[in-house]
Design a protein around this nucleic acid. Sequence first.
DNA 1: AGAAAATGTTACTGATCGGGATAATTTGCT
DNA 2: AGCAAATTATCCCGATCAGTAACATTTTCT
Lengths: 78, 78
Amino acid sequence: MLTDPSNLTPIHDTAELGKILRTKRKAQNLTQGEVAEHCGLSLRFVSEVERGKPTAEIGKVLYLLTAVGVDLFADPRD
Amino acid sequence: MLTDPSNLTPIHDTAELGKILRTKRKAQNLTQGEVAEHCGLSLRFVSEVERGKPTAEIGKVLYLLTAVGVDLFADPRD
DNA sequence: AGAAAATGTTACTGATCGGGATAATTTGCT
DNA sequence: AGCAAATTATCCCGATCAGTAACATTTTCT
């Protein structure tokens, strides 16, 4: 079974990841503060991750992705 | 253009991510030490990430994924 | 212009990370 | 099975940095 992959965006670095987070958050009319509170994180953290902070803790970033509705997929290439 | 998504594994937490990293690394007959050196990271870091350390820095984890040949994709769901 | 949202700055707590060494575990070989 | 080598998991130490709160400043939108 094939799925339309047109919405799949490759993630190569934290800048791209942050961009996706921001875009998706705004698409839902959420503020950084709302997302932050929903995840138990600081507004500060959300702001920095959206700007591509490479030293952010990955566990918290995963919370953020879940909160704004972005699924993550790993694809082992050959 | 359609891509076969059959190898796409959803990532919900760091434990799953670590599992994928380890599986792919072994599939290429690489040791943690080899991967670590190739990324400029410590063997300890590689070990901890594969064990699902949630506080690892996301930028370094992305290096790891690249090094072992795992592509990451984001999918904004509705 | 005015309100809301995002970013800059500072200070403080606490944990990450690396190196090196050492257990513990797994792998390979006879 | 049993033993040795290789691989992986932990431990200690010190330096560095992430994360947060609070307030100031800037940007964005109506």
